[in-house]
Design a protein around this nucleic acid. Sequence first.
DNA 1: GGTTGACCTCAAGTTGACTTGAAGTTGTAG
DNA 2: CTACAACTTCAAGTCAACTTGAGGTCAACC
Lengths: 157, 157
Amino acid sequence: MEILDIADVARRSGIPASTLRFYEELGLIASIGRRGLRRIYAPDVLLQLGLIALGRSAGFSLEEIKGMFGPDGQPALSRAQWQAKAEELDAHIRQLVKLRDVIHHVADCPAPRHLECEQFQQLISAAIASRRQDTGPISVTASSSRAGMRKPRNRSK
Amino acid sequence: MEILDIADVARRSGIPASTLRFYEELGLIASIGRRGLRRIYAPDVLLQLGLIALGRSAGFSLEEIKGMFGPDGQPALSRAQWQAKAEELDAHIRQLVKLRDVIHHVADCPAPRHLECEQFQQLISAAIASRRQDTGPISVTASSSRAGMRKPRNRSK
DNA sequence: GGTTGACCTCAAGTTGACTTGAAGTTGTAG
DNA sequence: CTACAACTTCAAGTCAACTTGAGGTCAACC
């Protein structure tokens, strides 16, 4: 069974060693042991890191990701919670698709002032609207991150 | 012509007044004047704020957004640059769709250890792969944000 | 068996995106 | 005309996600 040291993991994942230690400290990943002082890793960790990067790019915080997968990389949510996450992500994707439409419009529309262009206004309104009713039962774990005209008094802690 | 004070804008956009001042300081938005000391806004600003929220949720930094639209809300990129942005966003969306597939899989797959599930591994590899060749000619403005196994030595500034 | 370069820890620093607080000003309701 | 709630500025604080640095250890090659 192949094992990796921190430099291998860094090289193969593209993530700096300092970040790997940081992630371990947070409990996001774990080394399978030490050789002397030095961490050694199972190749699995590369998959986990991929998952973390993916989650980050979807706007999940490290805390959220930690809640979804334990340091062993095992899913740690109920089926319903996973379904809710998928739903959340879907909503996010729909929003990004709308933004992409806006961008395409901007790239093509010759209007002098976009804010006065009917179509532009409608695209934005639609995009905003799709975010508007996020006062729903979704957001299982109070996903504190992921921007977007959040409600005032967002209270944390 | 309807005008708004900062409290109106805050209420109607859901963005706190402190953030509106902060955005103005950064040059992301502008008030159309003052009544005494107090800022007054054109209703346009609501669209702009929607756009900003949208951009943030797509992972663009405030700096990037500022580069895309001036404080007047006018698009400030060439057609080609807009097209590149759309492309960038599309790639991001494709990645999120892959992540959603992973999540759906996790919600459904009964494997005891997911890291050992063939399909899971493949989904992640695919998702990672789609991000892998981001050493392309895209990323016009060196989009420093938006996570994902970034290359080491990402040097900014 | 000594050197050395890659690892280690732990504390402090940085950046982006805001928020909070203190202290001052003012439009407007009474 | 007076109160005062709502605005203002400006400095400092916070939080997440890392990075950097100082000082120490040690596995592996010569």
